[in-house]
């Protein structure tokens, strides 16, 4: 078993090295790491968005942060380290292994906010 102090030292060195390279740990997904599988209008006026994210050993997606802006509603799926509990406005729900969120009473246009883009969906 590797000494814990050695692991922390290596992580500290790594943080400095990657910091120098400009690599930033992101809490959102890029466009190719996220897939919107369906968007369904529900009878009660809410909208169900079925999605999938890239599988990662050290991260998971707890759901999305949904914010109302002038141009519409921005949806940002959160990439969370496995040892954190990231709070989101719209936690994921599960149905038959499908992950989805529900947004209530959508009147405005929906936008998907990713690491580098804002895409109308």
């Amino acid at each position: 078993m590797m000494d814990l102090r050695l692991i922390f030292t290596l992580i500290a060195i790594f943080t400095i090295v990657t910091g120098c390279k400009g690599e930033v740990m992101s809490n959102s997904y890029s466009h190719d790491e996220l897939s919107i599988e369906s968007i369904e209008r529900q009878d009660n006026g809410s909208t169900k968005i079925v999605y999938s994210t890239i599988l990662e050993t050290l991260y998971y997606c707890p759901g999305a942060n949904v914010t109302e802006k002038k141009d519409g509603i921005h949806i940002e799926f959160v990439r969370c380290p496995i040892d954190d509990l990231c709070n989101v406005t719209h936690p994921l729900k599960l149905e038959n292994d499908k992950e989805y969120i529900v947004i209530e009473d959508v009147e405005k246009k929906l936008y998907l906010k990713t690491k580098n883009d804002l895409i109308k969906i």
Binding site: F14, T18, E23, M25, S26, I54, L55, E56, T57, L58, Y59
Partner: peptide, 14 residues
């Protein structure tokens, strides 16, 4: 692997 090369982060993917 679902990531490849340096464009992916050190801790990314599976």
């Amino acid at each position: 692997s679902n990531v490849s090369g340096d464009e992916a982060g050190f801790t990314s993917g599976h």
